[in-house]
């Protein structure tokens, strides 16, 4: 480095020093994430294209077998089990995201109508439950929906569940769990959008004798759209890959993609199939993120929500 033939000028020396500084501060973390996350994910993606060997471990040669299995083609011909799981994941994601929007929208609006000093505390109240461990929160719902509890007895009265049964395991319980889990993720970006609302537009609509519904639809709703879309991404992506909630509240008939993937690894049955499912989740994630990036530039509040 010292005798490279030409004497380096002061400026390029400073540039080298800067580059070295950048390297020294950033490299440990960058290398850490690269080695312990980027490499493993690439390995996992590779596994999806390998053959399922003995003990469920991946082996050569490369094949598309696991993707065929994911689509339902097994040794015994085609069976719809995996496709049902995929469709159920999609359905649960759509339904729970929709319900979360319906609850979060009025809540976010309500917070902005309250006094300014209360707002941070109200937001905090919404977020605090999500700080507890997911397993514990889901266990709380198991307690609430168990046989003999008021909710389960109400369900029996309405005829939702048979005598002496609880409200879980069921698809209903999974939806409930998902809505509960993701509500804060939607309230925060929506709140950010409502707080920036330009009230002059609403006033103008009212001055022009627009009905409340039309005023809302043309003056309020478009302004909250960025927050709504950011929230949708924050809810829908993790909901699609959810593991804990369907495992505890859903049972065998409430299985989602996350369980399908996890079972291939924990039971040691079929790594390539699990990896193929994981690729599907990755695709969903990056499509969602791409959408959020395009919208998030206008909103600029999507990221701290994750914390």
């Amino acid at each position: 480095m010292a005798y490279s033939g030409v004497l380096p000028s002061a400026r390029s020396q400073a540039m080298v020093a800067e580059a070295r500084h950048l390297l020294m501060t950033v490299a440990p973390g960058a290398i850490w994430i690269f080695v312990f996350l980027v490499l493993p994910s690439f390995y996992l993606m590779g596994v999806a294209f390998m053959t399922n060997g003995t003990y469920g471990l991946p082996e050569m040669p490369l094949s598309l077998e696991s993707f065929k299995r994911l689509a339902g083609f097994g040794f015994l011909g085609w069976s719809p089990g995996n496709l049902y799981t995929l469709l159920r994941s999609l359905w649960q994601t759509v339904v729970s995201t929709g319900l979360v929007v319906l609850i979060a929208y009025p809540i976010a609006y309500y917070i902005t109508t309250c006094r300014e000093k209360w707002r941070p505390i109200m937001l905090l109240l919404v977020v605090v439950p999500s700080w507890t461990n997911q397993v514990i929160r889901t266990f709380g719902w198991m307690n609430l929906l168990a046989p003999g509890t008021p909710l389960a007895e109400l369900g029996q009265l309405v005829g939702l569940v048979p005598e002496n049964m609880g409200l879980y395991p069921s698809n209903f319980a999974v939806t409930l769990g998902l809505v509960y889990n993701f509500l804060p993720f939607m309230v925060l970006p929506l709140y950010a959008a409502f707080e920036k609302l330009d009230h002059a537009q609403v006033q103008a609509a009212q001055d022009l004798y627009a009905s409340p519904v039309r005023a809302f639809w043309h003056a309020v709703f478009p302004q909250t759209l960025p927050g709504l879309l950011a929230g949708t991404v924050l809810v829908a992506i993790p909901a699609f890959g959810m593991y804990v909630i369907p495992e505890l509240l859903g049972g065998g008939k409430g299985m989602m993609l996350g369980n399908l993937v996890a079972n291939q690894f924990s039971g040691g049955s079929n790594w390539p199939l699990g990896a193929a499912g994981a690729i599907l989740m990755l695709i969903a994630t990056f499509v969602g993120l791409y959408a959020m990036r395009r919208i998030g530039k206008r909103l600029g509040g999507g990221e701290e929500v994750v914390i």
Partner: peptide, 19 residues
Amino acid sequence: IYLPIVLPDIVFGISEMAF
């Protein structure tokens, strides 16, 4: 830096495990 935040938990977990 954002990769660990956005990766679904389950993909994160099984990638590490397989690796």
